[in-house]
Amino acid sequence: MKITVTVNGRKIQEDAACDLLLIDFLRAHGCLSVKRGCETSNCGLCTVMLDGRPVLSCSVLAVRADGRRVETLEGLQEEAEEFGAFIADQGAEQCGFCNPGLMMNAIALFRENPEPEEEEIKEYLAGNLCRCSGYEGQLRGIQAYLAWKKGVRS
C-alpha cells in the first residue's frame, strides 16, 4: 500500500507492506532514537508522537500513520536539549538507553500540562522501563526543569 507520512517535517511517500510496524518504517528512514526494547508495548523505548500524541511505535502499523504527522526525538532536538541537561544533572542518564522514550513522554507531558503535579509526572513515567536508575533521578530532573522554566517565565 502506498503511504505518505510526514516524519519530523519531511514528507515520505513509499509502498509499505501491510504488516510493517511504524518502528521499522522510522528506523529505515534514519530515526535511530526510536529503539526496540520489549516488543510487547511495555517499555516505552519506541515512543514517538503521532499527530502530537505519544504512541508506542512497536504496536502501530506504518499504514495507520498514512496521512499523519510523526515526530521522533530527532525532530524535537530543541525541546529535548534543554530538558536533557536536567536529567543528566540528576545522574539519571546512567546507560542512556531509555532516555529517548522518557524524553518523548516528558515532552508530551510538558505540552499537555506545563505545571504537572508529582503524581501526574509519575503517571507519564510509568510507561518507561529503566533498568538502571529507579526513576527517582528522572523525577527530580523533571521537577528541577519545571522549576527552572517557571523561574524563566516569571
Rank of each mutant, 00 (worst) to 15 (best):
E78D: 13
Q13N: 13
K35P: 03
S154E: 12
Q13W: 07
Y145L: 05
G52L: 07
M1L: 08
G52S: 10
T4P: 12
E120S: 08
S154Q: 14
N128D: 06
F25G: 05
E79W: 00
L146S: 04
S41D: 14
A80I: 05
V5E: 05
K122W: 09
T40Y: 01
E14R: 14
K149H: 03
L21W: 08
D89H: 07
A108D: 04
R36A: 13
A85M: 05
N99A: 02
G141E: 10
M104Y: 02
Q13H: 09
S59N: 15
D19S: 15
E93M: 13
L32G: 03
C95S: 04
R36C: 12
V48S: 01
L129S: 08
D24R: 14
G91W: 03
A92E: 07
A92V: 03
Q90H: 08
L73N: 06
I23F: 01
K35Q: 12
Q77E: 15
M1H: 00
E119P: 05
L20R: 12
T6H: 13
S33W: 12
I3F: 04
E112N: 14
V63T: 11
G75P: 01
S41E: 02
C43K: 06
E115M: 08
G96A: 13
E123L: 14
F86D: 00
L21P: 00
G137E: 01
G37Y: 06
E82C: 02
C18K: 06
E119A: 15
L125A: 11
V152A: 09
L76P: 06
K122S: 08
